[in-house]
């Protein structure tokens, strides 16, 4: 049937070679995508790196909850500050409440660490109702009625906790309920950061 067997064979070989090249490229891209998806699956989708880590913490001066007193962050320079955003309406805050009570009682007497609460987008009445039921914090909280301080700290949702080192630099941040282990780890990070 064919009169130019050599030419056709050469052409076929050429075609096969080209197809092989494209197939390799496509398979390569598919493998790349698979690896990317696999890596994405293993990651915590809620984890969003904060650009504030390693930056000086915003120095607020706000009224203390339940007291006629202003609280200024820079007054606590020289101490590690655990800044915890909470609200009475926040369900996850109930989960971490006992951790905050226990660890602050254990760590604060050393004088190296100061806990400060930020009662965000809440009312004094609801906030006190929350503490009356679950236990009062052995440290002060400031009132962030409109949630402006939360915006200033790039807070996504409550609870969120910032660990500020003794020079006023944000060393670490935790989104969600704290556990004793997380708190200890983050405190170590804040201590290590100069």
């Amino acid at each position: 049937m064919t009169t130019h067997p050599q030419t056709t064979k050469a052409q076929k070989a050429e075609t096969q070679k080209t197809v092989a090249w494209w197939q390799f490229a496509l398979i390569g891209v598919m493998i790349m995508m698979f690896i990317l998806f696999a890596a994405g699956l293993g990651r915590d989708s809620k984890f969003i790196p904060s650009p504030l880590i390693g930056k000086p913490a915003y120095d607020f001066n706000l009224k203390q909850l339940g007291a006629e007193k202003q609280i200024k962050l820079s007054d606590y320079k020289g101490k590690i500050v655990v800044l915890n955003f909470w609200a009475s309406w926040c369900v996850t805050c109930r989960e971490e409440h006992h951790v905050l009570l226990e660890s602050s009682k254990a760590v604060q007497p050393s004088g190296k660490v100061q806990f400060i609460g930020v009662n965000s987008k809440d009312t004094d009445k609801a906030a006190f109702g929350f503490m009356d039921k679950r236990g009062h914090f052995p440290y002060p909280s400031v009132i962030d009625r409109q949630g402006r301080l939360a915006l200033e700290y790039g807070v996504y949702g409550m609870p969120e906790t910032f660990f500020i080192n003794k020079n006023g630099v944000i060393a670490a941040k935790h989104i969600g309920a704290l556990t004793h282990k997380i708190l200890a780890d983050k405190l170590k990070q804040a201590e290590a950061l100069q």
């Binding site: 969003i48 790196p49 904060s50 650009p51 504030l52 915006l151 200033e152 700290y153 790039g154 996504y156």
Partner: peptide
């Protein structure tokens, strides 16, 4: 907002 929340 980018400085506080990142590119997200």
């Amino acid at each position: 907002f980018k400085d506080r929340y990142g590119n997200f």
